[in-house]
Design a protein around this nucleic acid. Structure first.
Length: 748
RNA sequence: GCACCCGUAGCUCAGCUGGAUAGAGCGAACGCCUCCGAAGCGUUAGGUCACAAGUUCGAAUCUUGUCGGGUGCACCA
């Protein structure tokens, strides 16, 4: 019998399913191809039955065959089940060898027809738990694609708000998922430091406030230093000023307003041009704000590798290079008629082309005055991302993390520097309001013949975070009557309307700190603070991740400040409980899992028929340390217990428990499902799948915890099983939370 | 007008490539700490899956249409 199927692959859900399908397909081919002639490919799907009593997998294939065979689905399913059971050894494939080189047994214990015609598959619990205890199912290094993820990208003219938190948390989590999948990922945070938003704050400081360059330096120095010394945060000062200047443009007489707007654009042009005092002010402000954004994100465990800035895209003339390429490839054409006369334009992705007519709907890339639009610059930038531009940024170090440095773009950088760009796949975490411009860029890439790149360009889009009217009122904003009736109100930096990220984090920490102070009074202050921060960040990150991307989050403090139910702290609490169990049991999860794998192996080797007695008798008689829970033999009990498919070599007191107690098995099954969930989350760009998966595991553990009292269990083998189940839950919970960027506290 | 997203329990949301009795959390009512931490567990109440037609053995899921909510469709960035 071949046992190489799984030799190096952990026994995980996805592989189990795939192998199962291969076998079933083969059977159908041989069984029914005569009756059907050359049969059309039957679409085989694997489902999960509504209840574990019905098995782990269900195949509705009989329904599909029913009409072709003119037979009742029930009968077909029964035939299939019988045939599969008859040749179980060839169908149910083996799990990997263990360290001793002994095959561990079949992964599938039996097939059964059920319901109206389902073919249900029952996995071999003993075999799989034993294998899972031995192997931490880590995916192998993947395709090796060099991936670039861009997220956060907050305009550097004001403080970050809740909407930016959703972006950064989604992006950061997705990076962690890609890396867990074995991919090499660079993280970029694009900085638009030359736009009107920055110009507005510059106008605010220079003209509304009448500050000089020197004065602005002083303000920045006083408001960006040590958080304990500064009276105000610079990003908050800018938040307020940005709201004020936005109103100021419309607050004067008509003539005044015209003058103010002129001032605004003059300022913008000076910033874009560079090499002048206004540009210097803009540079000071935006750099100071960016640093604060990085501080804020670091509170959430979010780090970056590189900050490309718009100022360098302009000054290093990325556009000029891109423009040539776009003209050469014919993506851009010069419009000579209609409203876009004199512009270089591009046909839109979904445009219906009518011959000869001027495309009034075309996207303008270069204006009639010769300046390039935002989309044009974005195309150039994305050519660089894929290494197609033939021009690079200069680099210098900008922000130091514990383990690495974040670099920033500059016109003339230092050597040596790491290489960024030239990625094979990119993900842009940008909210769904940007899907049109994103589609334009993809369209341009495709039009230039870079179809592979266009295919690997993912707009990781998500819906915005808005405030509930109640929340807006609570924050002291005056809310228009018509807005009070709406489900949510969009945040607006221009109006200064929104929840600032650091305010929210501070409130969360204050709330968790109150709890830890009450629950852990004996712990030192620093520890209580650390725990409070871990819980607060866990709550926040989980809150942002539990919604699927397409859902608008109507933000409310009541929901965000909740630590019960479907929250990060709920999951963290399960971890703390498990850690306490191991502390009191005076053993470790690793030791328990090793012991369990060994014992389970002895008890379950003989699901293959011929070898069972021989193998059972050949088992080495190992002796284990006295008094350790790991020292008891699974097969010690004399009462022989029949397990399905084979008789166990000796009575195994834990095995019936594993067979019958679905609340135990469901935890192991979920562990096996980890790679499946990861794969699903990555292919659909949906981190919420992982969030839900880990919450369900925590729920399953709590359920198990309340049904089985582990430490007082008297039967040693049963106790080993219970402890091993807790160990698996712990291993999974910690791993999965780390993927979500959530820490696992020692106590809480 | 066109494009995209959303409409599922009182509220906030899951429901993967169509499949067996539609699931969580919060809120409500009632229980559970002489036993591994109650940031927990259990029980109960609560749904014509917006509406209509179609495809199918089978639809919350796919198609089309209607209604309702949101967002985006500039030579602004």
């Amino acid at each position: 019998m071949k046992i190489n199927d799984f030799q190096r692959t952990p026994p995980v859900y996805l592989e189990l399913q795939q192998r199962l399908l291969t076998r079933v397909r083969a059977l159908i081919q041989s069984q029914y191809s005569v009756e059907l002639g050359p049969i059309a490919p039957v679409s085989l799907v694997v489902e999960q039955p509504p209840d574990l009593k019905l098995g782990e997998f269900a195949l509705p294939v009989a329904f599909e065959l029913a009409r072709k065979l003119r037979k009742a689905p029930k009968i077909i399913a029964a035939d299939l089940a019988a045939a599969l059971n008859k040749s179980l050894e060839t169908v149910a494939f083996l799990l990997p060898e263990n360290s001793a080189g002994t095959a561990q047994g079949l992964a599938i214990s039996r097939f059964e027809a059920a319901g109206a015609g389902y073919l249900n598959v029952y996995l071999n619990r003993a075999t799989l738990t034993s294998a899972l205890a031995q192997f931490d199912p880590r995916p192998q290094p993947n395709s090796g694609l060099h991936v670039l993820v861009e997220h956060t990208s907050i305009n550097p003219n004001k403080a970050a708000h809740v909407g930016h938190l959703r972006n950064a948390i989604l992006g950061d989590t997705f990076v962690r998922l890609l890396r867990a999948n074995g991919q090499k990922v660079d993280i970029q945070n694009y900085i638009d430091n030359t736009g009107v938003q920055v110009a507005d704050v510059v106008v605010g400081f220079l003209h509304l406030e009448g500050k000089s360059l020197r004065h602005i330096r002083e303000i920045i120095a006083a408001s960006t230093g040590d958080s304990k010394l500064r009276e105000q945060r610079f990003d908050y000062i800018c938040w307020e000023l940005y709201a004020r200047i936005s109103q100021w443009y419309d607050a004067g007489s008509e003539a005044e307003n015209k003058q103010r707007k002129a001032l605004r654009y003059a300022t913008l042009h000076e910033i874009e041009a560079g090499n002048n005092e206004t540009a210097e002010v803009a540079e000071l402000i935006s750099t100071a704000v960016v640093k604060m954004h990085l501080d804020t994100m670091l509170r959430l465990g979010i780090e970056y590798d590189f900050l490309p800035r718009e100022s360098e895209i302009l000054r290093l003339k990325f556009w000029d290079v891109a423009f040539d390429q776009l003209k050469q490839s014919g993506v851009l054409y010069f419009e000579t008629e209609g409203k876009n006369k004199g512009c270089w334009v591009m046909t839109r992705p979904d445009a219906k082309t009518t011959e000869g007519e001027t495309d009034e709907d075309a996207k303008v890339i270069v204006r009639s005055n010769g300046t390039v639009t935002y989309v044009g610059k974005d195309i150039a930038y994305h050519l660089w991302k894929f290494g197609l531009l033939g021009r690079d940024f200069g680099y210098r170090p900008f922000y130091a993390y514990d383990n690495h440095v974040c670099w920033i773009s500059t016109t003339d950088g230092i050597e040596p520097h790491p290489h960024f760009g030239g990625a094979q796949a990119i993900y842009n975490v940008i909210d769904s309001r940007q899907s049109d411009p994103q589609a334009n860029v993809i369209q341009a890439l495709r039009g230039m013949g870079h179809t592979a790149e266009a295919d690997r360009y993912t707009h990781f889009s998500y819906e915005m975070v808005a405030l509930t009217p109640r929340c807006a009122v609570e924050l002291g904003y005056t809310v228009a009557p018509e807005d009070l009736a709406r489900p949510y109100i969009e945040v607006s930096g221009r109006k200064g309307f929104g929840v600032k990220a650091d305010d929210l984090i501070d409130r969360l920490i204050a709330a968790t700190r109150k709890e830890t102070d009450a629950r852990q009074p004996e712990r030192p202050e620093a520890e209580r603070q650390q725990i409070a921060e871990q819980i607060a960040i866990g709550a926040l990150r989980y809150f942002m991740l539990k919604f699927t991307r397409g859902t608008v989050i109507a933000f409310d403090f009541k929901d965000a400040l909740s630590f019960e139910g479907e929250t990060g702290p709920y999951i963290q609490y399960a971890i703390v409980r498990i850690r306490n169990i191991f502390r009191k049991a005076e053993t470790t999860p690793e030791a328990v899992l090793a012991a369990f794998a060994e014992l389970a192996k002895r008890g379950t080797i003989s699901t293959t028929t011929q070898d069972e007695h021989k193998e059972a008798s050949e088992l080495p008689q190992e002796s284990h340390a006295e008094g350790s829970v790991t020292g008891h033999d699974f097969s010690r009990a004399d009462t022989a217990t029949k397990t399905e498919g084979a008789s166990a070599p000796a009575g195994i007191s834990a095995l019936p428990l594993l067979q019958e107690a679905d609340e135990i098995w469901t935890i192991w099954l979920r562990a096996a499902k980890r790679s499946f969930t990861l794969d699903q989350a990555i292919t659909t760009s949906e981190p919420a799948y992982v969030a839900r998966h880990v919450f369900q595991l925590a729920q399953e553990f709590n359920n198990f915890y309340h049904r089985h009292h582990i430490l007082t269990e008297e039967d040693p083998a049963r106790k080993t099983l219970l402890l091993a189940t807790a160990a698996i839950a712990l291993r999974e919970l910690i791993t999965l939370l780390s993927w979500l960027g959530i820490e696992s506290p020692e106590a809480m």
